[in-house]
């Protein structure tokens, strides 16, 4: 399979993830969407790295995965905090910065 196939796949998954991020009402749902987006980026990175014969992209992917895990942990911590103060995990209720 050529590079184009992998890139196409990654683009599609990325957009699906974006759609999920924007439309989900539950905060954890937003996190799931973000996960999909990050996955798509990783696919992109590995594909490019493979088709160049270089391992740089894969190392980058490694780092990305680790950082993503950290970010998920922190994101969930935030969600838990929000749930504690507002008793709701709905993203619609987090609008204190509205104009």
């Amino acid at each position: 399979m050529g590079l184009q196939a992998y890139l196409t796949l990654a683009a599609v998954v990325f957009c699906i993830g974006l759609f999920g991020t924007v439309t989900r009402r539950n905060t954890i749902g937003i996190l799931l969407g973000i996960e999909l987006m990050l996955n798509a980026v990783n696919i992109n990175l590995v594909a490019f790295s493979r088709f160049r014969g270089d391992d740089t992209g894969m190392v980058f992917t490694l780092f990305a995965i680790c950082i993503t895990v950290t970010e998920v942990a922190l994101g969930l911590a935030i969600v838990i905090l929000l749930f504690r103060t507002r008793r709701s995990a709905s993203a619609d209720h987090i609008d204190w910065l509205r104009g």
């Binding site: 974006l18 937003i30 993203a91 910065l97 509205r98 104009g99």
Partner: peptide, 17 residues
């Protein structure tokens, strides 16, 4: 125009997209 600032993160992500 002020109402564009909803304060909700998802709307901002949409705006970024």
């Amino acid at each position: 125009l002020r109402r564009m600032q909803t304060g909700k993160v998802q709307d901002y992500v949409w705006a970024v997209g």
